[in-house]
Design a binder for these strands. Structure first.
Length: 578
RNA sequence: GCGCCCAUAGCUCAGCUGGAUAGAGCAUCGGACUUCUAAUCCGACGGUCGGGGGUUCGAAUCCCUCUGGGCGCGCCA
């Protein structure tokens, strides 16, 4: 336990128990502008106990034992308890963090089996920027939750079973399996989809065959299934390409698409009917969860089985919940999906609870993802109005990173391959970090110039901070592992840096609990800022004496590891040099 | 019509679940390279937190209301 906020919380809580018999009161430890932290508990407690806040604070301080942790404790204002940590304590904790494999981030005491459902593209089409954000955010959440000790099940709930497959299969048959066009799903899925769409819209016979093909598909006609499998395989290859370039951890093992639940849909619907949860309305089997109303104030249905006997994705999502609860024994499900589907998930969760498939002990959360907007404030599209293609977007980011790279005079020559890898890491990292650093539910305006900038809360800024640290070790002729310390904090910038380092675990835990990666981004940005201030003020290799140099090298090494680990958990690479 | 989300500096965004004087980056202005990467740093300027009411010791944060935007609302996903 190295996080000061936790240490102080425990101490204050002990004092609360001793002084007032209130060991369970929230000590309300917050960062302070007048000290390192402040405990605000005296004010609400004064209310509860009917005493003056300052008296409460005084009593609290009298019972507070922080002599080994704090150098100063004082009461100020209406009853705030300002806590200033001693540099020795901070240094000791930083040293411990430095010596720890996991940077003193303890694994959670209550590990949960957690499904993170993310990316989930409809593989009939090409991925676009919309998919990018759910993929990036979901992957970061999966990594963070895993690192803090949860059992994470990544779940790529791809759309591989919908109506579009009828026409895709018909198109595949039409162009011939061995043809060049038949490989499009692997290289340019959208082109293939558009082609099918166009045939569907312009040729009634083709459309008719497509509809019949959907029926055959759902009836598991062997020949149709074979073609479908072929298409899905090609799509998976395409996904691999994209995920590989993005550095996303999803693999084939994580794919559990809609087709996976196909044979559970019937029983799901039947059981809902048998339990009396679902009823027939206008020919369709529906559930009307209480509290949801539609346009005319009438009850809003979740359609379980269409009047034609087909199923929608609500049913598929319900089957998915049952599977996860019954077979995977999950404690928590996180759906990293666009904010537009909020109502859908609310209703599906409600139905699952009604049916008894989703016990109170299991949490189901929709981690809403806001839209990415263009410069005009509307859904991000190309000038011609089409969705922006993912690969082209990434290419442009990398190209811009390359231009920036070439503008800067470097001390050494980079061979082409090294340059390519740096520029790729910076370009991709910039795009990913931009998705992560904004609160996930917020929409944000996509802006290449901002995200590729080396100033502000951007990927490149953090990468650059790490690269500068590595540069110091190269110049100094030693590795970060060799910088053992001991850490001593004399300069204000050293102290501020070390203190900030100690907050890493809290940042990770909060990110996992709230499913908000931007918290980790904010932490890392502040860390990089604190490092830069240190860098400007505290010469490392030219430190005044050997002890100071050893201490600063250790701080550099610890910062580098924290920065790298943090970025790694966000899925952002840190190049050795830039 | 109902429901959900949003409105914070000229622009793009934070604000740690109710704490003291609301923060960053960009832009603007002014400084710092014979010094470990200046792709950087340090200042300055800039906000009646959309309006109004309420809850309380204390509100950008919670409640109500109004204004102005976004999204969703029966057989698509």
């Amino acid at each position: 336990m190295s996080d000061p906020q936790h240490v102080l919380a425990a101490r204050v809580q002990a004092a609360l128990g001793a002084a007032f018999g209130e060991p369970d009161a929230d000590p309300v430890i917050r960062p302070s502008q007048f000290a390192d932290f402040q405990a605000n508990v005296a004010l609400p407690l004064a209310k509860k106990l009917g005493r003056k806040p300052r008296d409460i604070a005084a009593d609290l301080v009298a019972h507070l034992d922080v002599s080994d942790v704090c150098s100063k404790v004082e009461i100020s204002g209406p009853g705030f308890v300002n806590l200033t940590l001693s540099p020795e304590w901070i240094a000791g904790q930083a040293q411990a963090m430095h010596g720890d494999e996991r940077l003193a981030v303890e694994k959670t005491e209550a590990p949960q089996t957690t499904v993170v459902e993310y990316s989930s593209p409809n593989i009939a089409k090409e991925m676009h920027v919309g998919h990018l954000r759910t993929t990036i955010v979901g992957d970061a959440l999966a990594r963070v939750l895993e690192f803090v000790g949860h059992h994470v099940i990544r779940d790529n709930h791809i759309g591989d079973w919908g109506t579009p497959y009828g026409m895709l299969i018909e198109l595949l048959l039409e162009v011939g399996e061995g043809s060049a066009e038949a490989r499009l799903p692997e290289t340019d899925p959208n082109a293939f989809y558009q082609m099918a769409r166009q045939r569907f819209d312009s040729d009634a016979a083709f459309a008719q065959r497509s509809r019949e093909r959907v029926v055959k598909l759902q009836a598991h006609d062997p020949d149709t299934i074979r073609h479908w499998e072929r298409l899905v395989e090609l799509s998976k290859t395409y996904l691999h390409t994209v995920y590989g370039r993005l550095g996303v951890t999803l693999t084939d093992e994580d794919i559990r698409g809609e087709s996976f639940y196909d044979d559970m849909l019937g029983v799901t619907a039947d059981e809902l009917r048998d339990k009396g949860v679902a009823e027939i309305s206008e020919g369709a089997l529906c559930v009307f969860p209480p509290g949801f109303t539609g346009r005319e104030g009438d009850p809003l249905p979740v359609i379980i089985r269409k009047s034609d006997g087909g199923y929608n994705y609500s049913t598929s999502d319900l089957a998915t919940i049952r599977y996860r609860v019954d077979k995977l024994d999950v404690d928590r499900m996180i759906y990293v999906v666009g904010a537009q589907q909020a109502l859908h998930f609310q209703m599906v969760f409600a139905v699952a609870r009604m049916a008894g498939w989703l016990p109170e002990s299991v949490s189901a959360e929709h981690a809403q993802i806001g839209n990415v907007l263009g410069p005009d404030g509307k859904i991000f599209r190309t000038r011609s109005g089409k969705p922006v293609k993912l690969t082209e977007l990434l290419d442009e980011a990398v190209e811009r990173a390359g231009a920036a790279f070439d503008e800067v005079p470097h001390e050494e020559e980079f061979d082409e391959e090294t340059r390519r890898r740096i520029v790729e890491a910076v370009g991709i990292g910039a795009v990913k970090y931009a998705d992560l650093s904004v609160a996930r539910g917020s929409e944000y305006i996509f802006d290449f110039d901002r995200m590729i900038s080396f100033r502000g809360n951007t990927g490149p800024y953090l990468q650059y901070a790490a690269a500068r640290i590595r540069s110091i070790f190269r110049k100094g002729g030693l590795t970060p592992e060799e910088a053992a310390g001991p850490i001593v904090l004399d300069h204000e910038a050293e102290r501020a840096l070390a203190l900030h380092l100690l907050g890493f675990g809290t940042a990770l835990r909060q990110t996992g609990e709230t499913t908000e990666p931007h918290r980790l981004c904010a932490y890392l940005f502040e860390l990089a800022s604190a490092y830069t201030t240190f860098y400007e003020n505290c010469p490392v290799l030219r430190a005044p004496d050997e002890a100071t140099k050893a201490s600063r090298l250790a701080l550099c090494a610890l910062t580098l590891r924290t920065l790298s680990k943090g970025l790694e958990l966000l899925g952002v690479e840190t190049p050795e040099r830039m």
